[in-house]
Write a protein that binds this DNA or RNA. Structure first.
Length: 435
RNA sequence: GUGAAUGUAGCUCAGUCGGUUAGAGCGCCGGUCUGUGGCACCGGAGGCCGGGGGUUCGAGUCCCCUCAUUCACCCCA
């Protein structure tokens, strides 16, 4: 019988690495809160049609990367390949825009059917925000600032912030025509991919990495020269905000992005620590999407960050925090002590806000201390027959080796024990006790 | 979807020209230390050598197929 393994491109998040995820998710929640974003959770799968209409029929995501299946009634459903379409759907379904601007954030899985490689998985995790209802460039600046704040908080530097504007419905047609005029005469010299893109989505030729395309791309007209007055003003205002916020960035006129819904601002943040998939986060403005999905005309801007990639960069840069000793390991020697300490453990878990654990394996003292050490406990509470007789517990600080005797609590009443534990661990006593 | 590399113990990896009983370090369990962890020393458990077929007296090693992983292309988080 073959061993069953996790499906291709998926990963188990297991200890001790799962701790990094907890830390990251906690920081995300805190930061989103400070920026006044509220959490939204949407279904893991949606009607396939939502992504086709939202993300765009000619995108790689829709053309070849979706996990699509039929349910028992023959409805076509798709595991979300990105969050924005589903969030906008939920916002419209619940009429959340009726109360003015709306700021939402999410964290969770996305699914794309791709060959896995470094920083690319079939199930990945993203943190992102959607800022709905603001046309002003201050919103764009906020949406760029937030993830950079997160990266900074984790000490991650050496990043490249790239920025571009890809115009709006007013100036897009003229620029598209300019691109066609530039590429059509040399179409037969372009890569097969780019020839296909020419008629369907000429903007996408700009981010081709094919060497045959490069000379033509280098000479292609820049959108920045074709922006309409409004788009130009928006871009200038955004740049002013970013400068004022002290965010360093590079304007990259070739930056386009693979999703069809972007207008005006697009941006990406790259790290050299990631290998070929260097994008740690990306986003932009999507002023047409809400309307396209059946809602009122609504300006919007957002970003999405790859959590795997974030953690990979952090790992690479060695900014992960070391774990500190904390909590208590209860060591019972013999059955009588074990019976006596089970309620003590239960009592501690009610009032002591750190990990409290006990080995149920009837191991000798040395082995149990070793276990406590490995578990990263700060204190050990030792009790065998001798201590039972005297009605005490021995508290040992695993770091300083200091030992104290304390009276053995009766049942789950661990108040006095807790005081000593907090003294020894040099931790402030919980409010419960200070009353 | 295309290409390349790699699959040997829980983990990281040796394994010569095909040769007899498959190795190390770390980790795990136990002992030295009848009740005090990290260190040291000693011992032990743990392997269908990814799977299938072939060549051979003999295959972890050579050949074919297959599966998986990794990296890269396309594109993105």
């Amino acid at each position: 019988m073959d061993k069953i393994t996790a499906p291709r491109g998926t990963q188990d998040i297991i200890p001790p690495g799962s701790r990094q995820w907890r830390e990251l998710e906690a920081a995300i929640g805190d930061l989103a809160d400070r920026f006044a974003y509220s959490e939204i959770r949407t279904p893991t799968f949606e009607a396939t049609e939502l992504f086709v209409r939202g993300v765009g029929e000619t995108t790689d995501i829709v053309e070849k990367e979706m996990y699509t299946f039929e349910d028992r009634k023959g409805r076509s459903l798709t595991l979300r390949p990105e969050w924005t379409a589903g969030v906008v759907r939920a916002v419209l379904e619940h009429n959340l825009l009726n109360q003015g601007p709306l700021k939402l954030y999410y964290t969770g899985s996305i699914f794309r059917y791709e060959r896995p490689q470094k920083g690319r998985y079939r199930q990945a995790h993203q943190f992102g925000v959607e800022c709905l209802g603001y046309a002003d460039a201050a919103a764009d600046a906020e949406v760029i600032q937030l993830p950079i704040e997160l990266l900074t908080r984790f000490g991650i530097g050496g990043l490249r912030v790239e920025l571009n504007s890809i115009g709006d419905a007013v100036c897009r047609p003229a620029y598209r025509q300019a691109l066609l005029d530039h590429f059509r005469p040399v179409a037969d010299q372009l890569s097969a991919d780019s020839q296909r893109r020419l008629e369907r989505n000429p903007l996408r030729i700009l981010d081709s990495k094919d060497l045959r395309d490069k000379p033509f791309i280098d000479r292609a007209p820049s959108y920045l020269d074709h922006l309409c007055a409004d788009c130009q003003a928006h871009f200038a205002t955004l740049r002013g905000h970013l400068d004022a916020l002290g965010i360093r960035y590079a304007v990259n006129p070739r930056l386009v992005r693979g999703l069809d819904y972007y207008t005006r601002t697009v941006f990406e943040v790259h790290s050299d620590a990631l290998g070929a998939q260097s994008t740690i986060l990306g986003g932009g403005r999507y002023d047409g999407l809400v309307e396209q999905l059946g809602g009122p005309p609504t300006p919007a801007v957002g970003f999405a960050m790859g959590l795997e990639r974030f953690l990979m960069v952090r790992e690479e840069l060695g900014t992960a925090t070391e774990s500190v000793r904390r909590g208590i390991q209860i060591i019972a020697l013999g059955q009588a002590a074990c019976n006596r300490l089970v309620p003590v453990l239960a009592g501690l878990r009610r009032v002591y806000p750190e990990p409290a654990d006990m080995d149920y394996g009837d191991r000798k003292l040395g082995a149990q201390l070793k276990l406590a050490d490995r578990n990263g406990a700060r204190l050990a509470a030792i009790c065998g027959d001798a201590e039972l007789e005297r009605g005490i517990l021995i508290l040992r600080d695993l770091e300083t080796k200091e030992q104290r005797e304390v009276t053995l609590p009766a049942g789950t009443d661990v108040g006095a024990l807790l005081t000593t534990i907090c003294q020894m661990a040099a931790a402030p006593a919980p409010a419960l006790l200070q009353e």
